[in-house]
Design a protein around this nucleic acid. Structure first.
Length: 271
DNA sequence: ATAATCACCTGCTCGC
DNA sequence: TGCGAGCAGGTGATTA
């Protein structure tokens, strides 16, 4: 999926088109996503004004006076702005049509995404209440990660991808940030110095910032809200580059599995 | 509590 | 060229 940069890119892409607009129609073509799309959603938000939009972790939040709608893109989801009434394709599962004749349309082949109604206290919802700090906020610091990692035996890769520790970082950007920080993905989280955590945090922020500026990473199906792909792919140092030369030392990059996920790294530059 | 594995779903790529 | 295995940006649920 869509990690934080792709979700943020989506948010920035759709906001100017639909903020403060009135929902005319809720269209549910395929309710079977990760959880069923609530059947009563039309009566909850039709004719309501979308007052604001935000992002928390990898979740998009659409705020109405009646409550908040959560959208998650799963592994293969994307949202596009289209003219209302545009013919739907196979995996176009959900759509919000606004009165000014624009729609946002959720396309998600694998259906790991979600559309949920959170009500008036969205941050009390179980999906949001346990999340760690936003990586681009000042609350993510090297010191914070260092304190959290005490006595932790899990690998740094899994530690950073745990949304309870820090949100928004998935398989691509975790691998990239670890490479830039020179930290082996297999190292135990509790066996990393404060100084190295400070470097890692700086590289995480730098990587995410750059990816957002590039419109995210498009591998196969991700597109921005305007239908164009993201261009961060060309910046990738390790993700998807197994066997290719390390950009720092030229040694062939190594691929391993960690918690069922592929990790690519340089055994020479990352220790 | 913590850690590892499973499950959800479709489509594409790779190796034979 | 065809076909099955394996893999893909995530994460809650289940098991140990």
């Amino acid at each position: 999926m869509p990690e934080l940069p792709e979700v943020e890119t989506t948010l920035q892409g759709i906001s100017p088109h639909i903020k403060k607009q009135r929902v005319n129609k809720v269209i549910i073509r395929q309710p079977k996503l990760r959880w069923p799309i609530p059947a009563d959603l039309p009566q909850l938000i039709e004719q309501q004004i979308l007052t604001s939009l935000s992002r928390r972790a990898k979740y998009l939040l659409l705020h109405f006076n009646t409550g908040t709608l959560l959208i998650h893109l799963g592994m293969s989801g994307s949202i596009r702005i289209i003219a209302a009434g545009t013919v739907a394709a196979k995996h176009d599962h959900f759509e919000l049509e606004f009165t000014h004749q624009k729609s946002i349309r959720l396309t998600d082949p694998r259906r790991f995404g979600a559309v949920l109604w959170l009500g008036k206290e969205p941050y009390q919802h179980p999906l949001l209440s346990k999340l760690g700090p936003e990586p681009l906020s000042t609350s993510l610091t090297g010191d914070y990660l260092y304190q959290k990692s005490k006595d932790k035996k899990v690998s740094i890769k899994q530690f950073i991808m745990n949304q309870v520790i820090v949100t928004g970082i998935g398989n691509i950007y975790c691998a990239e940030a670890l490479f830039l920080a020179g930290i082996s993905p297999t190292r135990a989280a509790g066996n990393i110095s404060l100084k190295r955590y400070q470097i890692l945090v700086a590289q995480i922020k730098k990587t995410l910032d750059l990816a957002i500026a590039q419109g995210g990473t498009s591998l196969r199906d991700f597109v921005g809200s305007d239908g164009k792909p993201g261009y961060f792919k060309q910046e990738l140092s390790v993700y998807g580059r197994t066997g290719l030369p390390c950009k720092q030392c030229n040694k062939a990059l190594t691929e391993i599995k960690q918690a069922q996920r592929t990790t690519v790294y340089c055994t020479h530059c990352q220790t």
